[in-house]
């Protein structure tokens, strides 16, 4: 029950931070970190997959409404949410019966970092490819994906390392 409330608050909080703070900060001209993906990353491991997809869809839609990108964030976030379970299975070995919340502590430092990097990259690559459909320019997109992902990953890991103490 406490965890459900925590997740709802995190959902709202991350959207507010993303839309009103991060979307207004433009590192080096065109890079903006996408912290909202942290919501998907931190849901309990055994959170029902259908509910995970629906919440990813809801979150993506809200972000899209605020940033005038109808559907792009939704597509990327649902995609990342769908691949979350396989990614967790690749990097960790969690007992059938247990239902931990992903963190440095429950996953171990190295698996957790790998997990965050993989999901963030999947999300950013999908998002920037979709965004660039109208004019494909790889020399522009690849640095954009790499730098944005790096900043998002660093932010997420920094937030998580503060929490575990």
């Amino acid at each position: 029950m406490v965890s459900a409330l925590q997740n709802i608050l995190r959902f709202i909080f991350l959207i507010l931070i993303q839309v009103f703070l991060l979307d207004n900060i433009q590192f080096m001209g065109y890079i903006n970190p996408m912290i909202y993906i942290l919501f998907i990353l931190l849901l309990p491991v055994r959170f029902p997959r259908w509910a995970l997809l629906i919440s990813a869809f809801a979150m993506g839609l809200i972000i899209d409404v605020f940033s005038n990108t109808a559907g792009m964030h939704t597509f990327a976030l649902v995609f990342a949410a769908f691949l979350r379970a396989p990614v967790i299975n690749i990097f960790t070995s969690i007992d059938e019966g247990s239902n931990p919340t992903p963190s440095f502590h429950t996953f171990g430092v190295s698996p957790f970092i790998k997990y965050v990097i993989t999901i963030v990259l999947l999300h950013h690559i999908t998002l920037f490819l979709i965004e660039s459909f109208s004019f494909l320019n790889l020399s522009l997109i690849i640095p954009k994906i790499l730098i944005s992902s790096a900043i998002t990953i660093l932010l997420i890991l920094a937030i998580q390392s503060f929490k575990s103490k």
Binding site: L53, F57, D64, A70, G71, T74, F75, V78, F79
Partner: peptide
Amino acid sequence: LEIISLILISN
């Protein structure tokens, strides 16, 4: 869900 997103994008 992905199809809905794509419809939104194409609209």
